[in-house]
């Protein structure tokens, strides 16, 4: 099973190392990790996707909670939350293939952010499935380079992951 955790941490140097080190030494598997500052500049938010059974995820949460720099942890359910990640694809494209690639870009509501004589860079955001689907379609045109972010996620509705004193 994959679980998505939203983790609020102190925005201090070394915190990422503490979190990553914990996963490494206790043998937990991270699928992806994304970090960014929150509306409070002292607090960062990590979105961590962990693979494991229920017992593992319970230990992950408890061990993370023991880190002094970890402020709050919430588990996000797939149904009750939205998730996004971003990817950049550099695809080879000449005058013949460019129109069909642009069609694919349109269908996926992605963007072309760089055009060269023999290549394009496409930016796409979405959930993992959407990005994977786009990658599959682009493969036949020749993907030159891929760069993907870890996923970020947020609860739907009013329920929020925030720190109250």
């Amino acid at each position: 099973m994959r679980y998505t955790l939203a983790v609020l941490v102190e925005n201090k140097p070394g915190v990422l190392a503490r979190v990553a080190g914990l996963f490494a030494r206790r043998g937990y598997n991270i699928d992806s990790l994304a970090v960014g500052v929150t509306d409070n500049p002292e607090i960062s938010r990590m979105t961590i996707v962990v693979r494991g059974d229920e017992k593992v995820i319970e230990q992950v949460i408890k061990q993370l909670n023991k880190l002094v720099d970890v402020i709050k942890i919430s588990m996000l359910s797939e149904k009750e939350s939205v998730e996004r990640s971003l990817a950049l694809f550099k695809v080879s494209a000449d005058s013949k293939t460019r129109p069909t690639i642009m069609q694919i870009v349109d269908i996926f509501r992605a963007k072309i952010i760089d055009v060269g004589s023999k290549s394009l860079i496409i930016e796409i955001t979405g959930d993992e499935d959407k990005i994977n689907a786009m990658e599959r379609l682009l493969r036949s045109y020749g993907i030159l380079e891929v760069c993907r972010t870890g996923k970020i996620a947020m609860n739907r509705g009013l329920k929020s992951v925030s720190y109250e004193k």
């Binding site: 140097p13 070394g14 190392a17 503490r18 080190g21 914990l22 030494r25 002094v68």
Partner: peptide, 16 residues
């Protein structure tokens, strides 16, 4: 030493 002792301390500090 902060990196080295990260897994064996409850917490550690490098005073900057």
């Amino acid at each position: 030493i902060c990196g080295i002792t990260m897994p064996i301390t409850k917490h550690n500090y490098l005073v900057k």
